[in-house]
Simulated scan of single mutants.
Amino acid sequence: MREFENPDRWDKVAQHYEKTAHPFTARFAEAALATVSLTSQSRVLDVATGTGALARAVARTGAQVTAVDFSPGMVARVAAARLPNVDAKVMDGQALALADASFDAVFSIFGVIMFPDWRKGLAEMARVTRPGGCGVIATWQERGAATFLLLGQIRRTLFPERENAPMPAGVRALGDLEGLARELVTAGYRTPRIQHVTFDYQLDVAMLDDPETLFGMSHDWVELSDEEKAAVIAEARRMAADRAILPIPSTALIGVADR
């Protein structure tokens, strides 16, 4: 099992994730939300909610949100916000314990793409979307985003003879326009519309003092020696120069499709 497939790992990092990754993913969640029209009567599902960036954005529209994740720690962070129109539940997105056609809009912001069986995750999203509703998915391009993207760039600079670990199969399959459109249709959606969206991840250079927190979920970090890890950190500091924040431009695809 890879680290990102282990709910215990996500439980451990939930609070840190909410502080560091959530503000970044929230920008993409807002972009995804802008692709649909919701009302206070809308029923929305957020699959693999993490700390609830999308769920909280939807809640501000007045819609009713069910936010699910396989990590109890992540779900606890969503529940802690105590939003009256958000119901947070521990649930496997590959086997949703939810009725067919029960939601007007179903989202997954960088969630389904990480599933071991991402096709089943997409099919489950389509199954619980009502006819006339829509599904919305955000996926990274193949080289990833934020600290994963930075680490890959540095490894290619420092260790050009070493291959980086492949991104999860879902990212590889859904990380281009044609692949994402095709798989949305295969899952049961129709008329997919896809856009590129880019935002900077703002890396606080001081966090390089604790690199395991930044890079620890990446195999490309774990398999490095202590000396190689030190070289990676030195290169990141060189890239930042005298800046306190190192921006990492990261591009996502946001696909919306009808049921």
Rank of each mutant, 00 (worst) to 15 (best):
P168H: 04
L174N: 02
Q153R: 14
I194C: 07
E178L: 12
W140G: 03
R182N: 15
R156Q: 14
P168F: 12
I154V: 13
L151I: 08
L177D: 15
V171P: 01
D220E: 06
T139Q: 06
P160F: 15
V171W: 10
D220K: 00
A206S: 06
E163V: 07
D209V: 03
V222W: 06
A145T: 05
L158C: 06
P166E: 02
P192T: 00
P166G: 01
G175K: 01
P192D: 11
R143H: 05
P160N: 15
E161G: 12
G135F: 09
R155Y: 06
A138M: 03
W221R: 05
A181W: 02
Q202D: 07
A146M: 10
F199M: 00
V171A: 05
W140K: 11
D209I: 03
R172P: 01
E223T: 06
T147A: 09
T191I: 05
L203D: 01
A165G: 04
V136I: 12
L158N: 09
R162W: 14
L151M: 06
I137L: 06
L177A: 12
H219W: 10
L174I: 02
V222T: 04
P166Q: 02
Y201F: 15
V205T: 04
G188H: 14
Q202P: 03
L149F: 13
G170I: 13
G216I: 02
T147P: 03
F199N: 02
M217Q: 07
G170K: 05
G179F: 07
D209R: 12
G216L: 01
R172L: 10
P168S: 03
L177P: 13
A206D: 05
L214W: 14
Q153G: 04
R172W: 04
E142A: 15
T186H: 15
E142D: 04
V136G: 07
P168L: 05
D200G: 15
M217A: 11
E142R: 12
D176I: 14
T186Y: 10
M167Y: 10
A146I: 00
I137N: 01
T186N: 12
I154A: 14
P192Q: 09
H196A: 06
D204H: 08
E142W: 13
D176C: 09
E178D: 08
N164W: 05
Y201L: 01
L150T: 09
R143P: 00
G179I: 07
D204N: 14
G216R: 13
I194M: 05
L203Y: 04
E163K: 13
